[in-house]
Design a protein around this nucleic acid. Structure first.
Lengths: 159, 159
DNA sequence: CTAGCTGCAAAGCGTTTGCACGATG
DNA sequence: CATCGTGCAAACGCTTTGCAGCTAG
């Protein structure tokens, strides 16, 4: 939990209290190395503290979101995914057929943000994008199977 | 309902049945000229047919999504918004402070899609993007108020 | 005629909220 | 010691599902 020092400081300085629960949640997200659902965070924290409650997780995530320490993304799974906001920004390409997620470097989007700012005066929060589409492999399967009529049964419709 | 001809044809040809309910839902979405929630679609349809059910709306939206006739977007309001997929694509800039929504021309994103295809072989579905951020006006208020500590109470956290 | 759509009702899910207790600073 | 965070439980809102009857093709 030692590398959470700086974050703890940030929290304190913005008038937030530092509780073991928050530190555990923080730690879970930071060390995950990817996006986690609230349920996954719960599970992770439960390993060291069994009495953690969902509401505490959500409330803490609310605080962290407000402070831009974590990002909240709708990845089309019916639940939000939370991720530590790294200095190394990146985005996600989500295949709507195989659900595979690959990374997209932030460089692809910096230009876009600049263009939008120039033309609309709108400062886009391009911290963490989820871009849906069809991965290379699934494009091939779609072609061979003759169309996009129905790829596969899924929990969630592709937009 | 006459201008729904082509859509009706499309539906029929993919083995879907054409029912009055579906036509009404179709019509509601097409003539809305913007994104609608499932509830709004319901309301609209109810004006001509009071017995329409939520489940019918969702089931029909499922069909239309699958056929890429409507897009489903999470605009950060806790409910999906559905919009007719026009030939004239556009995207949305959503201010996380004042909730104002402005349009963004598709030209801003076509380059991005091409880049992603080139470098990752991933065919991005950039039908309809929701980009969150801070509008020009709210940037000013944020500056004058000294920071981003807390902008305003909202139903939903800005990511 | 029969596959598939409808309305109804109820469940399901992730998330939020009210409350009294407990911990933090 | 005052405030804020916690756990618990219950509520919430949107969406989904099981089912029997009806309807389009």
């Amino acid at each position: 939990m030692s590398c959470e020092r700086a974050t703890a400081e940030t929290l304190k300085q913005s008038g937030q209290r530092l509780t073991p629960q928050r530190l555990m949640i923080l730690s879970a997200i930071r060390h995950a190395g990817g996006h986690m659902s609230a349920a996954q965070i719960m599970e992770q924290v439960k390993e060291s503290y069994a009495y953690i409650d969902v509401s505490t997780v959500y409330r803490t995530l609310g605080v962290l979101k407000r402070m831009h320490l974590v990002s909240e993304t709708d990845m089309g799974l019916g639940e939000y995914r939370y991720e530590w906001v790294e200095r190394m920004r990146h985005h996600h390409l989500i295949c709507r057929d195989c659900d595979n997620v690959s990374l997209l470097d932030d460089s692809f989007l910096t230009g876009l943000a600049a263009d939008i700012l120039d033309d609309h005066g709108f400062r886009a929060d391009i911290d963490h994008f989820a871009i849906f589409g069809l991965c290379e492999e699934c494009q091939r399967s779609a072609d061979t199977s003759g169309g996009k009529a129905n790829g596969k049964a899924k929990g969630k419709e592709g937009a």
